[in-house]
Write a protein that binds this DNA or RNA. Structure first.
Lengths: 227, 227, 227, 227
DNA sequence: TATGAATGAGCATTCATTCAT
DNA sequence: CATGAATGAATGCTCATTCAT
């Protein structure tokens, strides 16, 4: 495993700069609204250099999307070990932070807006983002079913229910209203309510879990630090 | 009430043709990706004629959006009178048919993709589409709470939960995968599951309602005709 | 000589309206900057009607120019009979009023600006405007030479000298500075000075004539009413 | 003082080519009649390249005008030292050559034709062309008055008289008849006559000066080489 | 006859892409 | 290798001109 030469390193740096610039500009302006000049300028390099790294606008777009797909994997968290309700609260906040972050929302808007022209990208994003997230949830929920904490037949449906209860409303709204991100308080409202419904429907001992949830809420443990 | 002259009628027809063409092309290509030539060609008329009706690309886009917003109001249904579970099943299919129709999905993708450049349009769509739908659900659920069938504190959250349980998953997927619309069977799966969870969490007599739901499902009454 | 029918009269009226509109718009916007829509709108009629009277933009332009050429003939005055100096003063003011009128200046700018593309029009204007004016001056000056009041060999040169002394400076300036027409006082200054030089150079009794001029100036008879 | 790099030189060359092309095409076609394609083609370069140098048609027009205004300053001459009459003859020919050159006439027509749409340009031209020329004449005439050769009160009027006597007629005609420039003989006729009238009116010893003028004319010294 | 409506051709301007340095 | 400079092919929009009513 030889260390990359200085030249090679330089090359990689530039590529990253172009990809970061592309992400920013494409997310802000959309595919057709983005010009190669904008990307080059944002990267602080020249247009021919950009073309040396990516042979066309479309290639740049695809490469940027692949790159983002890779980045997205890092969202998933491990259970805290403080019990299911605490785990779910923790997961929920992690998902909310990720899914409602301005950057990811911009990216999602971009993909949704361009998906008819680049169907592969929609599929790729679906597989690497939502699908992976969903399967992470599924794994956890299945483990809890094994542990006797939850009861359900179809883990996928249960996971989708959790996601839908917790994040569907704020995310849909955030997609349509880019200048009014939900506040922490609003997120908390959706989150607590969603978890409550989820536990009512899926917990094997709903009263206890709802009480625990209430405790966590009362203790302010569901609230995260303001930005 | 004079009938519109032939001239006037012609004018209205052409305007409609342009708006329909604009909807199609904008939905397929996005705002920047759409050219006035494309719209004119799709409408079977010439570009200067298009400009006689709409003074700019942006005006055409806005007019098309207003027009679509007006169309969207017609979705709402009245309760069937056959009981709450039957009502909910009926509502659910109506919403699913509307929300998952290719045309409305295309329009939603367009709006989401352009919302950073046209924030007003996102707001307008939110108000005339989702908000109105949500308030329709809220009204019905509140009535049922009055009737003692449901129990909840916050009608808005309850309505959002219903929507999120039933349609969040297929709609999110449909947004990302434009060429693979969910089948009726898949929709049915989400729908039945969502209603089950909703009833478990919100019904004042969950067992009875779940049984009713099961009956409706067993009787195939939740399935609608294939396209 | 039958009177024109009402139809015919209507036709002539419309033509005049179009020509007047064309004069106004062409003078303001230049040839290329003028659109047939502008002319039709200014005339309060429709574009096809305009085309019924003039088969093309160029034809309209030429017709308007011919029409204006005909109008220009009416400027010339007859001697007042109060003596040469009074005549010259009177002529000078008449010329100044005509040549420095905003409308004629606009027309002159239009012709000068378009003369490379429409050389005939420059020639036509030259013949019907300046040339005719010049020959009027020549006739008067020649008569005065016959009467022994003036001495010169070449009447054309004498006439051009008179014109150049009196109007060259304010007219040149007015052509270049369309928003600052010379005031009556400025015109008077050029005019009195020009006449003085002319008389010094051409009069057979310069002292007497200069004294007369001084008298007229002193009596304020060279000043005309302010606009 | 570093020499400009080859790149820089190239840039300057191209800019000059564009400006020269713009002068030619604008002068021939007027502002609205000129297309950026024409200018680019005349310069032998492409339209986008033209836009790289000048961000808009209007900017190109203004830049060209500024450039021409700078060129105009070089016309002024110094007295020959052979006496006032010889000086005036020399001046007169210099002015005539400049003012009646096809290029300057074209430029003047362009400015006059566009001055209503670009009033600043008319003012700028007036200041850098005619005003400067006039003040040069005024200075010389004032010096001669100091020397006792001329008598007048208002130097500006005297200078304008000189200009008007000498050049008003041929220049006015040349503006209107672009394809028939005055011949040298015609210019000479206007010139000699104008100087004669000027000396008659302003010289302190008219007979002597007129005789000198006659001598210079007789000696053919007022004639310049044919083009 | 007069006009609302329609359009082919063009114009200012921009963009993805390539070449020469 | 990196870049300033160049361009063919659009793109939004307009105009002179024509048709159908």
């Amino acid at each position: 495993m030889t260390a990359p030469s200085r030249r090679e390193q330089n090359r990689i740096d530039r590529e990253k700069r172009f990809l970061a610039a592309a992400l920013k500009v494409f997310a802000e302006q959309g595919y057709s609204g983005t010009t190669m000049d904008m990307v080059a300028a944002e990267a602080g390099l020249s247009k021919p250099t950009l073309y040396q790294y990516f042979p066309s606008k479309e290639a740049l777009f695809s490469a940027m999307m692949s790159c983002e797909r890779d980045h997205m994997l890092e969202v998933f968290q491990h259970p805290s070990g403080k019990g299911m309700v605490a785990d779910l609260v923790s997961f929920a906040w992690d998902y909310a932070d990720a899914v409602l972050s301005p950057d990811l929302l911009s990216l999602a808007r971009l993909i949704i807006g361009e998906v008819q022209r680049f169907p592969e990208i929609g599929r790729a994003y679906q597989q690497s983002g939502p699908d992976r997230l969903l399967s992470g949830i599924m794994d956890y929920l299945s483990a809890r079913r094994e542990a006797g904490d939850l009861a359900f037949e179809d883990a996928e449906l249960a996971a989708q229910d959790l996601w839908g209860l917790i994040l569907s409303a704020p995310r849909t709204q955030a997609l349509y209203l880019p200048d009014t991100l939900p506040t922490r308080a609003e997120i908390e409202r959706y989150l607590n309510n969603g978890l409550r419904v989820f536990l009512k429907a899926y917990s094997t001992r709903p009263e206890a879990d709802l009480a625990t949830l209430q405790t966590l809420i009362g203790a302010g443990q569901t609230k995260r630090g303001e930005t």
